[in-house]
Design a protein around this nucleic acid. Sequence first.
RNA 1: GCGCCCCUAGCUCAACGGUGGAGCACCGGAUCCUUAAUCCGGAGGUUGGGUGGUUCGAGUCCCCCGGGGCGCACCA
Length: 506
Amino acid sequence: MTNETDPSPDEATAPTLDALIGERRKKREELAARGIDPYPSRYDRTALADDLHVRHAGLEPDTRTGEQVKLAGRVTAVRRHGKLSFATLTDSSGSIQLLLQSSTLGDEAAAVLDAVDLGDWVGAAGEVITSRRGELSVDVTVLTLLSKALRPLPDKWHGLTETDTRYRQREVDLLANPDSRRVFDIRFKAIAAMRRHMESEHFVEVETPILQPQAGGAIARPFLTHANALDIELSLRIAPELYLKRLVVGGYERVFEIARNFRNEGVSTRHSPEFTALEAYRAFGDLTEGMDLTEALVVAAARESIGRFTVAFGDEEIDLTPPWPRLQLLDLLEERLGLRVHPTDDIGHLREVCARHGVTPLPEWGPGKLVFELYDQVLLPELLSPVLVCGFPVEVSPLARHTADDPTMADRFELCIVGREFANGYSELNIPEEQAERFEVSAAAKARGDVEAHPADQAFVRSLQYGLPPTAGIGIGIDRLIMLLAEVDAIRDVILFPMLRPEAAD
RNA sequence: GCGCCCCUAGCUCAACGGUGGAGCACCGGAUCCUUAAUCCGGAGGUUGGGUGGUUCGAGUCCCCCGGGGCGCACCA
C-alpha cells in the first residue's frame, strides 16, 4: 500500500499557506507550554492610540511623560534590532509605536515578543514617551498576547487589491486597507447623523415587515420565499412605504425606517439586490416639508461624515451647500428641449419629441411615462449640482397626490445630484377611492403580464378609508448617498458584504 | 441576459510560445532609536480547474468550466 514516491502530509511539499499557519500555530503552542494563555478572556485597556497622539502632540524627542497606559490592538509592523525592538500597534482609533527593550521587558513579555506575528492582537502596558527620533511611543514593560492570528495578513504596504477577496473577506479588507475602513466610517457616521436628525425632529423610528404577502410601495420585482408554518408564499419587501403610511393612519404622525429593501433585478455598479433606504412620513406636511427634510438629512450626513459640503465627482467639484434650487420639471424640460411638454399632449407628438432626443419610446408607454423618460434620460444626467425637481406625471406616481390644479401631474419631487436620483418624495395620496382606481389600472397591467406593475393592495386602501392625514413622504437612497460622500463609484464598495455567488466548495 | 477584460507563492506584481522570477510576509543568523529598518543565508509554485486542443515545446495561443470586474439592457 505504501508508495515511496508519495509525499506524506508532514513534508515540505505541503502547501505554503499551511506551512505559514503551522509556523504560527507552533509559536502559539510554545507560549502555551510556558504557561502563557494565547487566548485570555479580557484586557483592561486604558487608552486609545489616537488619544495619546492628541494629548501628547509636539513633545520634544527623548521625552518621558511619566504617564502609564495600557493599549490593545493588532501588531501591524515589527522592527527588531537585537535587544531593542519597535512595533506598530493599530487599534480602532489609529496606530502608535511600541518600543520594547529587553532590559525592561519581563521574561514573559520577552517570550511574547519573540513569538509575536503581524496581525496578532496584543495588550501593551508602559510609559508614554518619545523616541530619540521624536516619535510618540509606548515604552512597553508588559506585552500580553490577546489572540493569535494564525493566517498571514496581506502585504502591509500594498494591502489587498483583488476585489473578489475584498468583498468575500471584508474583515481582511477592513484591516488591510485603510481606505476601505474610511468608506465604511463615512457610511455609519452618515447614517447615525441622519438618525439623530430624525430624532431631533421627533420622528419615531419603527420597524415594518420585511416578509410581506404582497410586495408594494415601489415598482420592482421581488424576491419570493415560503413560510412553512402558514404554507404561504411571501415576498421580501421592495419598499416599506405602504406599512409606514398605515402607521400614520394609526396615529404615528412622524415615522421613519432605515429599511433594507430587496429587488430581484440586475446587479451593477449602481444596483445591489439588497440596498438601504431611509423612508420618512410626516403628517400635516406636503411637498415643501418633504424637500426641507431631504435637504436637512443630506446636509447633516455630509457635515457629520466628511465634515464638508464639497465632493469630487470625476473632474467636477460638487457643492452640496443648502439651500438647493427647487425647480419645476416641466419648466426644466422646456428650457432643455426648447418646447413645453405636458402629459396631456398628443401621444404621437410626445413620442416624436422623445425620438428626437434619443429616447426610444416603448409602445406601452403612456404620455406621462414619455414625459418622465425625457426627464430621466435627457435632463437628469445633466443635473450635476443638487436640484430638487418638482412635479411629476401622475402616470408614473401611483401613490402620490395629484396637483391641485392639474389632475395629470403629482406633487412629487426628486433630488438630483451628479446626474443621478438620490431621493424621491411626495404629498401622499390619501383619497381612498382615487388610490383604489389607480391600483385597478396597475393591477390590470399586471394581469396583462407586466411583472413590475404595482399590485392592488386592499389592506392599504382599507387603511386609507380610516383616514390618512395630509402627509409628506420621502425616501433617500442611502447607498448612493454614501457613494457620493465617500467618492467611490461602485455600490459594492459601500456595502459591507455585497451579494456574490457562493465560494466554490473547494 | 449579451460583449470585453482579469485570475501566476500568504500578499503585491514580473516572465517574446523556449529552464516560472522579484519585493513584502515566512524560517535561520547579525543588529540597543527604528519607522516600507538594514545586512547575510534559506525555504516556499498542480500559473483558478480541465487524462481538452494546437505545438518539438503552453503561464503565454484555441476550446470548455468556475469566480470576479467593467460596459450595455432592466432598475433606485
